[in-house]
């Protein structure tokens, strides 16, 4: 990407940060509160374990690791590209026109132009929880596992990000589709939070989010998959994310070409 373009993105993000922090009281409240979301997710898992000794054959320590990894990855993706959801508004009002005529990539503009500063706290929170879950799980550390512990959330975040972008493109065809995409983004987060052993097989195939939390966690814990997937699959999250991005970018391009404006 050319230097001037990068400067433009930087300015867009900076303008967003300035504008979002104008209503100070509301902004501070929003940022502080939404960063508690991840804690609630993990608390919800702990509450479940109050009434059950195991979940899908996993202990509380293992289940919390799966959930924390998935949650952290989701928060990374939500910060980076989550606001792409607003595309529906751009398409409905025709504001997408102005995005398309500017000499910057449409996807890049939409992401930079809506950069959600207030979500940054959630990523910090997610990281802290993930670190705590790693300690709590009592992992037998090896260099390979340390590498996996660092790369897995990033790769899984990329997987979620691809889902956000792919989901957003539906808006080009079906304007009121916001909730449809939610089934695969927020739904994917819920799906990936739990051990995959509890789901029917067709669902595990349809939602590839086993790669987000479950598979890397298995490798970190040194546990063979009760479902019988070979051990090397646990390392394939980056591959899954790359494949998802290829699909997402293709969908995005098709979507942008399909855009017909509002006619007003």
């Amino acid at each position: 990407m050319a230097e001037p373009a990068r400067g433009a993105y930087r300015e867009l993000v900076r303008a967003q940060i300035r504008s979002q922090s104008q209503y100070r009281a509301s902004f501070a409240m929003d940022a502080a509160l939404t960063s508690c979301v991840s804690v609630l997710e993990i608390l919800a898992i702990l509450v479940l374990f109050r009434v059950t000794p195991s979940l899908g054959g996993f202990s509380v320590r293992e289940a919390v690791l799966i959930a924390a990894l998935c949650e952290f990855a989701f928060q990374i993706a939500d910060l980076a590209v989550g606001n792409i959801e607003r595309i529906a508004e751009y398409v409905r009002t025709g504001r997408m026109d102005t995005v398309l005529v500017r000499p910057l990539s449409p996807l890049g503009q939409l992401l930079a132009g809506d950069f959600p500063l207030r979500k940054a706290g959630r990523v910090v929170q997610g990281l802290a929880l993930y670190a705590a879950a790693l300690v709590y799980a009592g992992i037998d550390w090896t260099p390979a596992r340390a590498l996996l512990a660092v790369t897995a959330p990033v790769a899984a975040g990329a997987l979620f990000a691809a889902a956000f972008v792919a989901g957003a493109t539906v808006a080009f065809f079906w304007i009121d589709s916001g909730e449809f995409a939610n089934a695969f983004t927020y739904g994917g987060r819920t799906f990936g939070t739990y051990p995959q052993t509890i789901y029917p097989a067709w669902m595990r195939v349809l939602f590839g989010y086993g790669f987000a939390g479950y598979q890397p966690a298995l490798a970190l814990l040194g546990r063979p998959d009760p479902l019988g997937t070979p051990a090397w699959v646990a390392w394939c999250t980056p591959l899954a994310a790359a494949a998802a991005w290829v699909g997402a970018v293709l969908m995005w391009r098709t979507g942008v070409r399909h855009y017909r404006s509002t006619g007003s």
Binding site: Q22, Y23, A25, S26, F27, A28, M29, D30, L33, T34, R118
Partner: peptide, 11 residues
């Protein structure tokens, strides 16, 4: 009072 109510809604 606040004009922007994103904070209270989050709460």
């Amino acid at each position: 009072w606040l004009l922007d109510i994103r904070g209270p809604i989050s709460f």
